[in-house]
Simulated assay, not measured.
Amino acid sequence: MADSRHQLAFLDGLRGYASLWVLVGHAMFMTGYKIEIIAQPDMAVELFIIISGFLMTYHYQAREVREPWMEPDTWKIFWIRRFFRIAPLYYVCLALALYFGPELWQSRLDAATVLSGGVEEQARYASRYLDQSLTNILLHVSFLFGMTWTHNFQTPLPDWSIGLEMQYYAIFPFLMILALKLGRIAGMALLVGVMAVVGAWLDRNGFVIGAYSILAMKFHLFAAGMLIAMTLRADGKWKWLLVVGAVAVIFVPLGGGRSALHRAIKIAIVLGFVALLYKDRLPALLKWPTEVLDRFLSNAPARFIGDVSYGVYLLHLIVMLPVCGWLAIQFPETAPIPRFFASLALTVPITYGVAYLCYRFIEQPGISLGRKIASRYQKATPPKGIPSENPA
């Protein structure tokens, strides 16, 4: 299995530019200036989901010898690492968002005064900013909010996807055991099928409200990333069957973005991901542009925005809402285009600066603490007799 860090360096850029896409998309929403695809940041979140499915599977496979999939200690190690990667910064941002919710709500109302829908259209979002109830706090602190249709969109943060991720992490070790027992293709086909049936039932019966934060609605995108990672453990026709599977799951009709254009973009993301992963094996016609793209996604700026991508994703609305509200009140006659660029000029440096500080002083210490706690469950020597993965 190829496990060179350089081989995956492009993921820094993918994460970084996806978070920037979310920021820019929300700026378009808040200023009234729109470019069709860029103004839909949910597509960037779907890229995050595919990356997450890939990375979880990639690292789980890479650590299989010293962290066997069937061992409960392996599951504990995985959950501890993921909790301390996600929770520290999330809890800080959650506290800020809940405490300053009323002020952020006023900023959103101010920003809406220059939008075509006006202030009246914003009324349906009020509880997202004003709900400081103990129920809302406990559901978010426990990460259970994503499994509800009442509180999954109930803070000023774009955290519905965080709840979704935590559901995925909760069952991920068992997904890998199923792949071990049934084989990659059979196991993933069963999982995608079951999740699609559950998601369709939830959707049909009115349990999907506010955001697509219930795992069944987006599991097929996690599965696309998982299938791409599994190609690294497969040979010959099995490798390409897994690639075909990663494309096929995009056609599951759940979780938004179901138009032909959205589906084509997601297929392009999957195929581009595979091309970057196997760039050295591409024919000459495709190899050069793929290598150029890889360098663009792997350079120093890309590494920086990749490092701070989680902070940018969580923090940007806390910064952007006051900025857009202030611009709307101070310059009500300004056209959408200059207002959009002014919002970026103010939001981007503040958000990235604060995100960098959070990365240095919250995220990195949290990751280190998680590794330290997880190390208590790690065996000193690799166990013997580890069962090998079933063939696809």
Rank of each mutant, 00 (worst) to 15 (best):
A2T: 11
H6N: 13
D12A: 02
R15W: 03
S19M: 09
I38M: 10
A39Q: 12
P41L: 05
M43A: 07
F48Y: 07
I49Y: 00
I50C: 06
I50P: 00
E64F: 06
P72M: 10
F78G: 05
A87S: 07
Y91V: 11
C93D: 03
L94R: 03
F100P: 02
G101L: 04
L109E: 13
D110M: 04
A112V: 03
T113K: 14
V114N: 06
L115G: 08
G118I: 11
A126N: 08
Y129T: 01
N136W: 04
L138T: 10
L138W: 14
L144N: 06
F145N: 06
D159K: 06
F172H: 06
M176G: 07
I185N: 03
L190F: 15
G199K: 01
A200L: 07
G206D: 06
G210I: 05
Y212E: 05
S213R: 05
M217H: 05
M217A: 10
K218W: 12
G245V: 02
G257Y: 07
S259A: 14
F273R: 00
T290Y: 04
P301F: 02
P301S: 11
I305N: 00
G306Y: 01
L317R: 02
I318M: 14
G325A: 04
W326F: 12
A335L: 14
R339Y: 07
T347K: 04
Y359W: 12
G366L: 03
I367V: 15
R371G: 15
N390D: 09
P391M: 14
A392S: 14
